[in-house]
Design a protein around this nucleic acid. Structure first.
Lengths: 339, 339
DNA sequence: CTGTTAGCGCCTTCAG
DNA sequence: CTGAAGGCGCTAACAG
């Protein structure tokens, strides 16, 4: 038994070398052909592709990542999967990236910068081709970790140069809905929020700014709970608020699930909506159009953000410089009967 | 410039060799120490761990996967992320696997066997250490692809030997809720379903079996829609059913979102629940306890399934043989006021 | 445009 | 219990 024989560890998998042999070219030519690198004679490329096909060749991502120092994985970090918002963004991202041969590594941060940093550390070890992150608030360490990996931020708009993002102005959206309530003649407008993540607080800023301008801002009409958002919580805060402030005539909930809970509690307690109190939500989640009454809300461009961010990332990963660094996808006030 | 100099492609990353040098041992000893392989002197192992720590060493998963033919990734395929059910399962899986150093590759099949097969093909190229799949219905090709990769199936119970699964009997659950409606004195019990995936159809079987036994089965009281499940659809099917079968006195919806839509339509149309018609759902999703009236449903062991499946997979990946191949996590009838 | 050579970082195999 | 040698499969660098 020769020494080389003894040491073979071949895994049985079809390798590029097999394809190259079959096609009668060198491995590197096969590699170039299969990656679509230009500079391979069309005829050879065809032969290689056919050989690969007939042998059922599947490139080894690990070998590829090791040799080239880059993988075809894109890491995407979202706060939660229990908010339909992020699920829609994810779906759009995946269906945009998949046809280009990129897989996604989904990480859930639970709105915690330390978890995000940990995930980033782990995922960056895989040398992802790109990163998709939610928002801008993160640890300094996380920011350093990102380094020069192509990266697009979701859900917000930033002004910083060289920072790519696809989102919309949370503050403007908060302002739009507050303004709508004012236009409906409401004067004692409350704001109810949970989770209190940065985007929620930006909506709060839009709310405050608008009411201050109108001379109607009253901090006692804010209910900010750090708990996770839920229908139950929305119902509780609704009841509490109306009890403590019977003159409250409108409530802007920072998310539709809270608002839905509020509407159901209104039904349960016989509070007329919008007669006694108008109710507005945010995100236009599933079911909001089914409520009694149907919920006025802000339709956020979830799929558009996911797709735009993915496209931006694709061009960054190709080494191009996208025309815009901050893509504003806008939002749409969706007025229904609850206001 | 020497030949070796010229050819260096070093990535700048801290490697095992750096750690070994720092600790004054050979790379392989460092490797063994860091992987916790037994047979390394405690003192050396300590020195290695310290060196790794101080250098901020992070193992390269690609190199590791290439050399060892296995990664630390677990691929998990679920039908959808827009059903909270799967999100909860996922969360439980991730938090169980993470402490053991496994990352998850999440794939979404959209209930399509062909998409599942494609995802499997792609993810298996990454040599995942294990697989978590939803249910048992898949293409023959997919089954072959799985080969001998450690694999646990979620959501159902199988009888086949060597097939590992963590779930509960969908059919029994369908039976339990139907029986409950019978016990409440209902006789014209309808079944409303969407999506029509295998698990839904198993619940349908439980419903049919129970009603046949009671001599009350009437196929005209079944509404099976292939559309995706949603509150809107639930509302539509509710209205349609009551119009065509005014004598219908109970409805079993195959998922809570449909049932919630049904309840809201009942409110809108002034149909008394449970007076005129009792309504039951499935899965105990968020908000079902907030409905008017609160929804009777089946609480399914989502987190328990995720955790149990992950634990089972961990032992399979360690090369052990789990005591049970089919883990029945049960379910719980949650009776509220809608019945 | 194609091929040769060698190395990415780690781990398996064999030897001591 | 530790180490030396070399390969996993692919692609970068360089040469023709």
């Amino acid at each position: 038994m020769s020494n080389t024989e003894r040491r073979r560890r071949h895994s049985g998998r079809t390798t590029l070398a097999d394809v190259a042999r079959e096609a009668g070219v060198s491995p590197i030519t096969a590699s170039r052909a299969l990656r679509g690198e230009r500079g391979v004679a069309a005829e050879l490329a065809d032969r290689v592709r056919q050989a690969a096909e007939s042998l059922g060749y599947v490139p080894d991502p690990a070998a590829r990542a090791l040799a080239s120092q880059r993988s075809h994985q894109v890491a995407i970090l979202v706060p939660l999967l229990s908010n339909a918002l992020f699920v829609d963004v994810l779906e759009a991202v995946q269906s945009t990236l998949w046809p280009h041969g990129y897989q996604t590594l989904i990480g859930v941060t639970h709105y915690r910068p330390d978890e995000e940093e940990q995930l980033l550390r782990t995922y960056l070890a895989h040398r992802p081709a790109g990163l998709l992150l939610t928002g801008f608030d993160r640890t300094e360490a996380a920011r350093r970790l990102i380094g020069h990996v192509p990266c697009v931020h979701l859900m917000e708009l930033a002004r910083a140069p060289g920072v790519y993002c696809a989102g919309f102005s949370q503050q403007d959206a908060g302002e739009a809905i507050t303004r709508h309530l004012l236009e409906r003649g409401r004067r004692r407008i409350a704001f109810v929020a949970a989770q209190l993540d940065p985007r929620t607080m930006q909506r709060a800023e839009g709310y405050r700014r608008t009411l201050r301008q109108a001379g109607l801002y009253d901090p006692r009409l804010e209910r900010l709970s750090p708990e996770p958002s839920s229908m139950r919580l929305g119902g509780e805060l609704f009841a509490e608020l109306l009890q403590q402030h019977p003159d409250c005539d409108a409530i802007f909930f920072c998310n539709d699930d809270l608002a839905q809970g509020g509407l159901l509690t209104a039904l349960r307690q016989g509070v007329a909506v919008p007669g006694r109190v108008a109710v507005a939500g945010f995100n236009d989640l599933s079911g909001s159009d089914q409520m009694l009454p149907p919920l006025t809300t802000v339709r956020t461009p979830r799929r558009a953000m996911g797709e735009a961010a993915a496209r931006m990332l694709l061009s960054l990963m190709r080494g191009e410089t996208p025309a815009t660094t901050a893509l504003d996808l806008g939002f749409e006030l969706t007025v229904r009967e609850s206001t």
